[in-house]
Write a protein that binds this DNA or RNA. Structure first.
Length: 415
RNA sequence: GCGGGUGUAGCUCAGUUGGUUAGAGCGCGGGUUUGUGGUACCUGAGGUCGCCGGUUCGAAGCCGGUCACUCGCCCCA
């Protein structure tokens, strides 16, 4: 096997794979634009603080999954593990908190030091959208509607279930958190080791523990919905009613919590069972507190991110545009002629291959391998009469066509 | 970070209780056809058996370590 490998958890995006990524990204970009979300990009690394505070120092992502390093000037930098913090930092940096709302779409690599699995890489790729400066519930519904549209256009919506929950506002959440900690502390020794640790770090995460013993304890645990104040209840009800208006189905999942500190109010995930343990295809929520954590004042935000690898695995990827014409010259001089004739056709948008050698049999074989629709052959016989041989690869039909007519033949709308 | 499984040709895989030159299909190259692909036939190239060490007269097969992939946990897209 190859000794020379890319680092663990990374992979090369060779044309076949890249084609799938591009299909996902192109589909998402164009759907996003139809909602008015314009593409932007942030640096692949940021100052470490950009991620540390908003995501939570104790969160797994920050505490054990970041690629952080000191640069030559001594600054601590971190390869971005997600896109939202950087996007909000960019908004603040550019002074755009005065020009709201802002609506962003992005796509690019993210980095987390994790043990690789199917659908989980150390360098992976996400698409995402952020709606900044909109506190109304229609914003929550809009990003979900956009996400749903993208999944639908990729043909994966039917494989996914939208799980929806609310964490409430800060006051509701901290009241509930206290109640939950009080309850679970009484059962601490019965909790799994993981959950005992989570009790201090992120007690809400215990809610979606897969441990059967934990689940048994949780049956009688306080319910978040009982701790939502009216403002939180109203926001969630409004979000749901906007989703109802456009008939997007969802499943209320009161155990759906997020691992990152910046979330409040609406959280959601599109989940599939087709990817093993990595069932989350698209996830997001509202993060009204994020901007102020970065020192940018109060700016509402809601958005989501989705894994391109996971989406590509679920989608049917259309094949690349096939070769339209393979041009085979039977001598260097004829090759030169075809090299010239190919240019306007390419300029017109056709995919043209000019053969790199003059042995006809081999070049025909290559044309077949490339699934070229047509082959143009130019040899001494044709040149003497100012024609080329045009062969349709599908049925093997050949005909001669005047060199002067070649361009107009392929550039006419019929072909 | 923790636990399980798997590493033999470019790909998918065989390889009998450790035994001498490690095989097949597909793919790739050459030919039948030096002006014609896809079919057919002939033929060829390609492997430090993931890597390192150990046991043995002898290791692809046993043992240890290591790396990679994979499944699950943690966590997440």
């Amino acid at each position: 096997m190859a000794k020379l490998q890319s680092p663990r958890g990374t992979t090369d995006l060779l044309p076949d794979v890249m084609n799938g990524h591009r299909h996902v990204t192109d589909t998402a970009r164009s759907a996003s634009l139809s909602f008015g979300y314009e593409e932007m990009a942030t640096p692949i690394f940021e100052f470490t603080e950009v991620f540390a505070r908003p995501l939570g120092e104790a969160s797994d992502v920050v505490s054990k999954e970041t690629y952080s390093f000191a640069d030559r000037g001594g600054d601590s930098l971190t390869l971005r593990p997600e896109g939202t913090a950087g996007a909000v930092r960019a908004l603040i940096s550019a002074g755009l908190t005065q020009t709201l709302p802002q609506k962003y779409f992005y796509a690019g690599p993210m980095f987390r030091y994790e043990r690789p699995q199917k659908g989980r890489m150390r360098q992976f790729h996400q698409i995402g959208v952020e709606l900044l400066g909109v506190s109304s519930a229609i914003g929550d519904a809009e990003v979900i509607a956009l996400g749903h549209m993208i999944l639908n256009q990729l043909g994966v919506a039917t494989d996914c279930v939208l799980h929806l929950n609310t964490l409430g506002d800060t006051a509701s959440r901290s009241a509930y958190r206290q109640a939950l900690v009080d309850y679970l502390s009484d059962h601490k020794t019965a909790l799994s080791a993981d959950s005992q640790r989570r009790l201090d770090l992120n007690p809400l995460r215990i809610l979606d523990s897969k441990d059967a013993g934990d689940q048994a304890i949780l049956v009688n645990a306080p319910d978040l919905s009982d701790y939502l104040n009216s403002l939180s209840q109203d926001h969630f009800a409004a979000t749901r009613s906007f989703l109802d208006v456009i008939k997007i189905p969802y499943h209320i999942n009161s155990r759906l919590v997020r691992g990152l500190d910046y979330y409040g109010h609406t959280t959601f995930e599109f989940i599939t069972d087709a990817l093993g343990a990595q069932g989350t295809v698209m996830a997001g929520g509202r993060y009204d507190g994020l901007a102020s954590m970065l020192g940018g004042g109060e700016v509402s935000g809601v958005g989501w991110a989705a894994g391109i690898e996971r989406l590509a695995m679920l989608s049917d990827i259309p094949p690349l545009k096939p070769v339209d014409v393979m041009m085979i010259g039977m001598s260097d001089a004829h090759m030169a002629t075809l090299f010239r004739l190919a240019m306007p056709l390419r300029d017109h948008g056709l995919r043209i291959e000019t053969a790199y050698a003059t042995n006809l049999g081999k070049q025909m074989k290559r044309a077949n391998r490339l699934r070229s629709r047509y082959v143009v052959i130019l040899g001494d016989d044709e040149a003497a009469r100012n024609v080329v041989m045009l062969r349709s690869m599908a049925d093997g039909q050949q005909s001669e066509i005047a060199i002067d007519d070649l361009a107009s033949h392929f550039m006419s709308p019929i072909v």
